[in-house]
Design a protein around this nucleic acid. Sequence first.
DNA 1: ATTTTGACGGCAC
DNA 2: CGTGCCGCCAAAA
Length: 121
Amino acid sequence: MGAFSDKAFDIVRRIPRGRVMSYGAVARAIGEPRKSRFVGYAMRNNPDPDIYPCHRVVFKDGAICDSYVFGGPEVQKRLLEQEGVPFLDDTHVDMAKCAWTPGEDTFGRPTDIDWEREIGD
DNA sequence: ATTTTGACGGCAC
DNA sequence: CGTGCCGCCAAAA
């Protein structure tokens, strides 16, 4: 995989549970906002969905991609709901509430590595 | 080397 | 709020 994909996965891996990032946000986090599209391309080659929560990457609108998803958009939505990600409607995530960006505190926050912990709060 | 193809995003309708 | 188009740019054919 290219260096870009590597960076993309590095960012995605840090997305805490219950939060999401848009493809463009990931691209911007990498420093190349123009390659938002390529982020999706990278996700398509996700080596290990268990390590890289690509399901937390959605459209800027909060919509979920309808193609090339591991188990279909429904599965992705299901995973997000499971994490407590708020939805505006049946097809859109409430980005205003769960949009995340690197730099926010992930220290005490649960990340992909904390799958064991439940969202109970 | 050239053409086609997108897990996108923005903007016009 | 949904559709359609165009611009980006690397990867695949």
